[in-house]
Design a protein around this nucleic acid. Structure first.
Lengths: 206, 206
DNA sequence: ATCCGTCTAGGACGAGTGTCCTAAAGCGGT
DNA sequence: ACCGCTTTAGGACACTCGTCCTAGACGGAT
């Protein structure tokens, strides 16, 4: 079949299963059945289960990087890009309600397992954090950028966790709307009424 | 030793280990070592591992119920009670940074395992949701009460997940402050400037 | 057709799991 | 001191797990 193709199929199946069932709960037998491959054959492509996990994380990192680049190409202003990020939870609402956030659930599990790949998985959070920070900087809030980025991340994690627990789609939409309202105060254009958003430098919070 | 005492010790140790290591990753041997009891002896007190999980969830439910009752006794107005809830993430910041939220991480894991006790564990979320809804109702926002309760829950889950991933205590405090600011708009007293909070009934959103 | 490096199948291995069984230790009442 | 119920210890059981080993199938180059 070609080693590269088989390897890619393994990573793809493992990615899906790790997401849906968790890393520890997913056995080699389950992945083997999904790819229609013998259990022993894994060790030609990977040297351990941890090695597969590492490949899965790398694949997710690459995938998300491409997604962010696409957004940068499609959305001219940083406000639109951030809105795009906020919309993730409604775009992926089906998967999120069924399985939660792929990033949050994986890092949480790896942390509890004391798994060495935790740092690697945290890189997914860092990727988003850095990207969001850059968008907020471009939006004119350099000093608060990191705090704002973390706030948006916290929003997405909170929504994902609860939408997962309650299977509530309306909740997702309500929270997204609330987030958009909050964002509009920071999006150069409107700046809405008077109060609300403090100028950067007014207080060094980040 | 007395069956009740032993049983309580098992539940206590299992609770701590399930929280720190996850349910599936915690073996009977680990609990046995913690309680200094033989593995076989478990089945005198519990008929399966699932049964222990069930007892742990019940214990957590009881514990949280008492906590909420205490808050109701100590805080006269509902605004103070909600603030008390928001403060959880800073009160328990050490555990949260190390192990995440006990409720969120458990329900997420059980969902991935397809474990039948998931509904029982979700009851913890429902407990908080119902209680918060009641506080917002008393605060004068009956129509939005459930949506506001869910928003507060999402806040706590988002903060817990990210504080866990990044081990960032400052982040916790920033987000708590942000939440208190948001809350002050809903706390009858100030109602702050002009805009912001829509009166209940202005739109039926919940 | 032959050969050789690439890729795969299948089973064996030891460790660890939850569960169950049986014997015995502990202990209060007589 | 004895009995009977409660509580415990320890090992056996079947099973699943990740890992490893070896033999053979496949396919392109000669």
């Amino acid at each position: 079949m070609g080693a590269a193709a088989t390897r890619a199929q393994i990573v793809e199946a493992a990615d899906r299963l790790f997401y849906r069932q968790g890393y520890e709960h997913t056995s080699f037998a389950a992945i083997a059945e999904a790819v229609r491959i013998s259990r022993g054959n894994f060790y030609y492509h990977f040297k351990s289960k941890d090695d597969i996990l590492s490949a899965v994380i790398d694949a997710r990192l690459e995938d998300r990087r491409r997604m962010l680049q696409r957004w940068e190409a499609e959305e001219a202003d940083p406000a639109g890009r951030i809105r795009r990020f906020v919309e993730i939870v409604v775009t992926n609402r089906a998967d999120i309600q069924n399985y939660g956030c792929p990033v949050g659930t994986l890092t949480t599990e790896l942390a509890k397992l004391g798994h060495p790949a935790l740092d690697e998985a945290s890189g997914l959070f860092t990727l988003f954090r850095t990207w969001l920070r850059e968008q907020f900087t471009q939006l004119g809030h350099p000093a608060q950028a990191d705090a704002l980025a973390m706030h948006v991340l916290a929003f997405s994690q909170g929504v994902a966790t609860l939408a997962h627990a309650f299977r509530d789609e309306d909740f997702i939409r309500r929270e997204v709307q609330r987030m958009h309202d909050w964002l509009s105060a920071y999006s150069g254009g409107t700046r809405s009424t008077a109060s609300a958003v403090p100028e950067d430098g007014a207080q060094a919070d980040a």
